[in-house]
Design a protein around this nucleic acid. Structure first.
Lengths: 213, 213
DNA sequence: CGTTATGTACACCGCCCTGTGTGCTTACGG
DNA sequence: CCGTAAGCACACAGGGCGGTGTACATAACG
């Protein structure tokens, strides 16, 4: 615990205030939303004085953006890298979300902040594009006729399931998975998921690193 | 303009304050979101004193719920009743949204309010269920094998397009429409949309009146 | 006409929000 | 062991919020 974190300027020392703040953000922003979580409450939960918080982040906006950037990628993380699955299975595994998932925080941030130019909104946009690109890559690997289209379609299904789960208060991901299966089978010419790895050309168009849901 | 509106108790007289408030809500809540629109600003836009507003609505919560209830059903309204289209065409027409649509306000309300028991959240839930039921009815009319499933799937596509349009700031409804076409063709055994009007039994399970997007 | 419901103007309350100023304590690192 | 910086406690500023109290104006209907 001697030298674990560095501030934005690269200072030394510190007993983990920044990490505690971000950790509390993860919990509170997800549970209560961004707008309904005040800095007072957040600092109390992080056991951090408000003064310290504002020395680490210039304002709540920056904190929100960093919260999205550091969002625990527990949902989709690793799905794309699982080598024990065929590409087709990987595409479908993206819809196996644990039922404990509250809601995709990127959609929540975009709606709550309501400003497309907010740093967090920009990041949410980039992230969603990156997920679609990753899906497209996997679709290409699976031999889809139009990988970009399939990737975009599957991304839309994920967002639809997330939004609908929130509004209806009921898990909508199984429905999305069923649609995904249909789309995948329709998009792959030879629907035999029998090749562990075929053409891996991947003239990839997705340079962005991708994390969670 | 003599007797146009009646208050919650059914009183008489009035020069349209309530309507102006709701009209201003339509505009401001959509443009700025619910939480970012204060009652002061709303009353100023409606040219209504704050006192009057609070005589018509017990609080902002009630106003928000009524705003959702009176939401201008310009997007999906009438699509289900168009007799000049086959059921299949009607299902697809639901995805022809004008590009001016900001975002489905029901999703916005559910995310912003963040309380599933809020009156507006409850109404949003009912509304989404009603739309799915309507889609299911039309799917049944079109001869789908599993109308309920197809209705739920199409509803998910609509929500996904709405959410994704918001986050990406780019129209996602064409993608959703393409998926819908695949699903519909897959779900209808004889894909000949040749009957102008077939069974109109509609053992409907949707008592709620349905309006917009 | 007068009564009564309706709408208005304006100040006001208490609350919570983001964000600071100030001075004190702690702990690391030389 | 001491300097320095990270962190803390506390109070407070400034503003927007939802919501109200009071006194006055107006329109409808008897």
């Amino acid at each position: 615990m001697t030298e674990l974190e560095k501030g934005p300027q690269g200072r030394r020392r510190g007993r983990g205030a920044r990490e505690r703040i971000l950790s509390a953000s993860q919990q509170l922003f997800r549970e209560q939303g961004i707008n309904r979580t005040g800095m007072d409450q957040l600092c109390a939960a992080a056991q951090v004085s408000k003064r310290t918080a504002y020395q680490h982040f210039t304002g709540k906006d920056e904190l929100v953006a960093e919260y999205l950037r550091r969002f625990d990628p527990s949902v989709l993380s690793g799905v794309f890298d699982r080598t024990d699955l065929t590409p087709r299975e990987r595409l479908l595994a993206a819809f196996d979300v644990p039922p404990t998932t509250p809601l995709c925080p990127y959609i929540g941030a975009a709606v709550e902040l309501h400003d497309p130019e907010h740093p967090a909104s920009r990041y949410a946009r980039d992230y969603k594009k990156a997920v679609a690109a990753r899906l497209a890559d996997t679709a290409r690997e699976a031999g889809a006729a139009d990988p970009e289209q399939l990737g975009e379609q599957l991304a839309l299904l994920l967002d639809g399931a997330a939004a609908r789960t929130r509004v209806l208060n009921a898990d909508a991901f199984p429905t999305a998975a069923a649609i995904a299966a249909v789309l995948i089978d329709n998009a792959i010419p030879a629907p035999s998921p029998r090749r562990p790895s075929g053409d891996r050309g991947t003239t990839g168009s997705a340079p962005v690193p991708v994390g969670g849901q």
